[in-house]
Design a protein around this nucleic acid. Structure first.
Length: 468
RNA sequence: GGCGACAUCGCCAAGUGGUAAGGCAAGGGUCUGCAAAAUCCUCAUCCCCAGUUCGAAUCUGGGUGUCGCCUCCA
């Protein structure tokens, strides 16, 4: 198994610290809003990483933090004129709801920053004692020039950083690149007592302290979006390695950015979509397929067309399963052997730095085998089992029963309710009568008019069904 | 200005030295009263130029273009 490590800029063979165990830390959300479709990418991707390690027989410890103290949260609380906990409680709850809806496995631990204040203070005191931190007027800074390897993750040199600094120089810092470890609070802001001031910890310290507490001073994988490489992860390394003197993380994994219709997502462009909203328009599998159809390190573009394609792709898988009456034959199908060659190709793709796009191609090949009527039933059953088996490694088919039943929907089973459903059924029966009388004009008119209302008629040998 | 990526069929996307996976769309056939659905078939020499090599989409150099980071950000 090979993983691209941002630090060494190379695909490296994965060697766990402890035999057969893997410890993963992924930067979680700052809980001041519903998370957006761009945030969803790492959440879904690292869920697949985790599922794949489990599939390979590893014991996985998966930690994802919740940043519940931060300037943005404070700003949001002031804006809504409520207590900060009101904001964080609301969006932590929403985070769990939305990740569940995306079929993301719950983390083993979701540490909150506010539960680690004392640990962070202790940690920062160590940094200060070791000479890596200095205090000015109640604020504590990390002195980057003291850490020789600073910049190794993001390939930046201190001189370059200085030259490119666009931020207003903070005069109390010794070097513009020094970052805040502890910040004194203004009246009314949430705060904790510390040796430096009454204040709050900086964002960069929380991930170090929590990950090391739960996973150890050196652990296997640390993940997040590329934008976190600098400064967040760079700063984590500096702090962690300054204190322990040993390597912090063995593999740094960063996913590429998500754009919307070719543009960066932003509130000002009015192209800001929460995962919650997207879930109303597309089902989980469509969304997961969309993310997985491109390699995780590449940028990906979110647009209507690509989502439609993803939807069709998932539909193909489901219709393949439907062609062998998966639900009816489930018991027998799930006793079948897996298609070894396809499984091997899938594993090979995933072993190569989680090449999910290639892995999905295997699923299409398997789907073709399911549908091929010239294949024996036994082979088609094997293929069907293989599709579901591999799909589940990617977190697909979590609602298989519903999806298959969805395809089988006849008019009285649609999501339409009560009278509406009865009226449509009535119209369909008229159309059926018209067809019997070979009154094609009337039959087609009913079909066309229903279509105008967004109801697509699909004729099957067992009668018509409606698709929305 | 500094640093780092990327550029493959109409669109999305694998492929890191041995002769271009897959998906969508499109075109054609079967089926159907017609259509849809379903199903079968067809469909690229890899941004440009110059090198290295028996051989390059894959390596090197130079262009051109796109993007990211350098500031809170997945």
């Amino acid at each position: 198994m090979k993983i691209f490590d941002t630090l060494s800029r190379d695909k490296k063979a994965f060697v766990p610290i402890e035999q057969n165990k893997v410890k993963i830390y992924v930067c979680g959300p700052t809980v001041y809003n519903y998370f957006h479709i761009g945030n969803a990418r790492p959440f879904v991707f690292f869920d697949v990483v985790r599922r794949y390690f489990l599939y390979k027989g590893y014991e996985v410890t998966f930690v994802q933090n919740l940043t519940d103290i931060d300037d943005k949260i404070i700003a949001q609380a002031q804006k809504e004129d409520v207590d900060i906990s009101k904001i964080t409680d609301k969006y932590i709850k929403a985070f769990f709801e939305d990740t569940k809806a995306l079929n993301i496995m719950p983390a083993d631990e979701n540490p909150k920053a506010t539960d680690y204040i004392q640990e962070m203070i202790d940690f920062l005191a160590k940094l200060e004692k070791l000479g890596y931190a200095y205090a000015v007027d109640g604020d504590l800074y990390f002195e980057v020039s003291k850490f020789a390897d600073y910049g190794k993750l993001s390939c930046k040199k201190l001189e370059d950083l200085r030259a490119g600094a666009r931020v207003e120089a903070n005069l109390s810092k010794r070097n513009p690149a020094d970052f805040t470890l502890w910040k004194s609070s203004k009246p009314g802001e949430p705060s904790w007592k510390s040796p430096w001031s009454v204040g709050r910890p900086g964002w960069h310290s929380e991930c170090v302290v929590m990950s090391q507490d739960l996973l150890g001073e050196n652990f296997d994988i640390h993940g997040g979006g590329v934008d976190l490489t600098f400064p967040h992860h760079e700063n984590e390394i500096a702090q962690a390695e300054a204190v322990t003197g040993k390597q912090f993380v063995n593999y740094w994994m960063h996913n590429g950015f998500l754009n919307i219709e070719g543009e960066k997502m932003s509130k000002s462009l009015d192209n800001f979509f929460t995962a919650r909203d997207i879930l109303k328009q597309y089902d989980v599998d469509t969304i997961r397929f969309f993310f997985l159809s491109k390699h995780y390190r590449s940028p990906i573009d979110f647009n209507k067309k690509i989502m439609q394609e993803s939807k069709v792709a998932i539909h193909n898988f489901i219709s393949a399963l439907n062609s062998v009456d998966y639900l009816a034959n489930r018991e027998q199908i799930e006793k079948s052997d897996l298609l070894e060659e396809e499984v091997a190709t899938f594993v090979e793709a995933m072993d190569d730095d989680f090449n999910t796009a290639k892995a999905l191609a295997v699923l299409f090949g398997v789907a073709r085998k399911i549908k091929k009527e010239s294949d024996s039933e036994a082979l088609r059953f094997q293929a069907a089992y293989t599709l579901v088996h591999l799909g589940r490694v990617l977190g697909l088919f979590s609602k298989l029963e519903e999806q298959i039943q969805g395809l089988d929907k006849t008019v009285d089973e649609t999501a339409l309710e009560g009278l509406e459903s009865q009226l449509i059924e009535l119209l369909l029966s008229y159309r059926n009568d018209a067809k019997t009388e070979k009154n094609w004009a009337l039959a087609d008119k009913i079909r066309d008019d229903l279509q105008k209302l967004g109801l697509k008629i699909v004729d099957t040998k067992d009668g018509a069904r409606i698709e929305r």
